[in-house]
Design a protein around this nucleic acid. Sequence first.
DNA 1: CGGCATACTAACCATATGGTCAGCAGAAGG
DNA 2: CCTTCTGCTGACCATATGGTTAGTATGCCG
Lengths: 205, 205
Amino acid sequence: MTARARIRNAALELFGAEGVGRVSLRAVAQRAGVSHALVLHHFGTKEGLRQACDDYVISLVRDAPDADLGDTAGLAAMLEAGTAVRRYLGRAFLDGSPQAAALFDELVAATGRWLEQGVREGWVQPSDDPPARAAMYVTYLLAPLAFGEHLARSQGVPDVHDLRTLLRFSRAGIEIFTRGVFADERALEAWDAVRDDRGSQRGSR
Amino acid sequence: MTARARIRNAALELFGAEGVGRVSLRAVAQRAGVSHALVLHHFGTKEGLRQACDDYVISLVRDAPDADLGDTAGLAAMLEAGTAVRRYLGRAFLDGSPQAAALFDELVAATGRWLEQGVREGWVQPSDDPPARAAMYVTYLLAPLAFGEHLARSQGVPDVHDLRTLLRFSRAGIEIFTRGVFADERALEAWDAVRDDRGSQRGSR
DNA sequence: CGGCATACTAACCATATGGTCAGCAGAAGG
DNA sequence: CCTTCTGCTGACCATATGGTTAGTATGCCG
């Protein structure tokens, strides 16, 4: 592997694990087995390195192979990526990097089309607010990026990356999306009551 | 407001917005209008300040008033909190601070009980894997903490904190939890097929 | 009043950091 | 063989950072 790529990967891991601010160029260099000057030589500046990481990670998702699952293949790729990439992605979304924002918007658009098609073909429930639903749906699918660690730990599973755990949680998610959580409409009705009540505080849950 | 509290709040805002690593004690001190030495005087060390922020923010959620909505009132409090607190919480979960982990586990436990009760009383769908579902449900509810910014922007809403936006998305979420997304069981069946197929890769979506 | 703790600051220190620079090894090509 | 270009390094620099210390103002209790 080229030194440049080694540096990028090292940065990816460290940035994902600790956050960009807490990782020094020297630490990256050491992990990559090069001098810290070489990092600058290749990426110009720390921000440049960060950008390169963003670009790389996001290209992984965007150029995901096999679109046979519809336009949401990128989402699948995202959730299958390695721990480092997942954590990095979570941070990228939280930090609001422009690339991450663009990716999110793309995902929402693609998912919106996909859901729309599903509605037409009858295998997706219609929605009272399709754009908002598409965005929420994407957010839900992305949520494990940010909370994966807690998900695993809360079930007493040591390794976040254990395949069985991943499968188990994805199954639970699909169950929610297929059968819903609530058995009647009372939550929706309660929400509408809140809204009609001059949209005071609590509209959540 | 006491200087100590001012410092804590300043730290909360800056840490939430930029990440702990990227914020210097001097920046915190300046925002609080004190010398940087006072920050150390009160909190001992930067890590101490971070801890104090964690404790404070999490106490906000844990000691949420009105448990009239059941044990999940803390979740509501979380989602209603100010931008700074929300962002800080998102980062706290991503960074895996012990406090955040404990809070997550509490939320999962409380939600699990709440769902269980709902199942008994008939207003919550039964699940094939209640613990996993509870964890996933909590994760979904928490997701806007990490992705709120993108949610808003993807809908062209400038201000993340606009009440109408918040209500709109929460409504979309409730809709998903009430009616589901999929109209038939094919997604679940597809998942089971993947699992039986020796649980190869893709079990998501 | 005197003594004492508490809140606070200015000045200082060692260190680590991002970034620069001059130069070296070695392959490419004439 | 000589040149040149690229990947790469060690040494260096200015700065900012977390942390310490000595000292000041202030309010409280006897």
